[in-house]
Amino acid sequence: MANSEDDPVAIPNEVRLFRRIHPEWVVYDKNRERWRPTSQNFQDSRDGTPMSVFAENLAQAHGELPAHFLLGRWSEWGLAAVVAGQVRELGQRVYPDPHNQDQDERFESHAAIAGSKAKNVMKQMSGWAEWVITPRARS
């Protein structure tokens, strides 16, 4: 069982955290002239477990590439990045969480963003998110 305490040693503030983005949860932002993930993408799982991400530093250490996170049933999804230090400023804890993922998946870079996800927190993360891979329908 992973420790659910914030872990800035394993995942320093400058590290990008990759979040899968559902293709239905993308809208066009005329202000920024680009597609953006909606705030709905940035919430905890329905089963109550914290929001899943993949930490870029851990991914690089284990040879995991962004495209690997979008294989199989995730192939229509996109991948966006937020920065660990930013989400910590929102009161979130960020830590490695390799054991808490779907049974058919095993990514050593799997990590958690834990903490209260009020609507303004979700919206803030959506505004910060930068695309790594846009969903197929938007590319």
């Binding site: 202000n31 920024r32 705030s39 919430q43």
Partner: peptide
Amino acid sequence: WTPTRAGGLQADWHQDGIDLE
């Protein structure tokens, strides 16, 4: 318009210098 995870709907405008959800 986008769906919410709870069976609802969300309306988004991102234009003219505002973000409205």
